[in-house]
Amino acid sequence: MSEARSIKRLVIRLLLLVVVMFAFGFALVPLYDVMCKTLGINGKTGDKYEGSQVVDLNRQVRVQFVSSNNVDMAWDFYPKAEELIVHPGAVNEMLFVAHNPTNKAMTAQAVPSISPGDVAVYFHKTECFCFTQQVLQPGERIEMPVRFIVDRDLPKNQKELTLAYTLFDITARQPPAAKVASNGG
Rank of each mutant, 00 (worst) to 15 (best):
Q133M: 15
L17D: 00
G43F: 01
P116Y: 02
G51Q: 09
D76M: 01
V71W: 02
N100G: 03
I12Q: 09
S68Y: 02
N58V: 08
G25W: 05
V86G: 10
H124S: 14
A23C: 11
V11L: 07
K156A: 13
E160Y: 12
E93I: 02
L39W: 07
F22N: 08
P145F: 10
M106K: 12
E83A: 08
T102D: 06
V54C: 14
V66F: 10
D76R: 01
R5E: 05
F123H: 03
Q109N: 13
H124P: 01
P155E: 12
I114P: 00
Q109K: 13
I170F: 10
Y165C: 06
F148Q: 04
S6P: 00
M106C: 03
N58R: 14
L57Q: 15
I142Y: 05
A4D: 05
I12W: 05
I142S: 14
E3K: 09
E83M: 04
N42Y: 06
A4N: 06
R59D: 13
V97L: 08
R173P: 02
I7K: 10
P112F: 04
I41S: 15
M21I: 08
K48M: 13
A4R: 05
C130Y: 05
V66E: 15
G25L: 11
G184N: 10
K159Y: 08
V119C: 09
L167Y: 02
K156F: 06
Q64P: 03
V66Q: 15
V20S: 09
V55L: 10
V61C: 12
P116W: 01
R173C: 06
T107I: 04
G43W: 01
L17A: 10
D76N: 05
I41D: 14
I12L: 09
P176G: 14
D33R: 14
I7M: 08
H99C: 01
P175W: 07
D56N: 15
R173A: 12
V29Y: 15
G185L: 10
R173I: 03
E127C: 09
F123C: 00
D56A: 13
V18S: 13
P116E: 01
D118R: 08
A74R: 05
V11S: 03
I7G: 02
K159N: 11
A178Q: 09
G117V: 09
V119D: 13
N92H: 00
I12G: 03
P138R: 11
G184M: 07
T45F: 03
R9E: 11
Y32Q: 13
G51M: 08
E83I: 00
T107R: 05
K104L: 04
H99S: 06
V18F: 11
E50D: 10
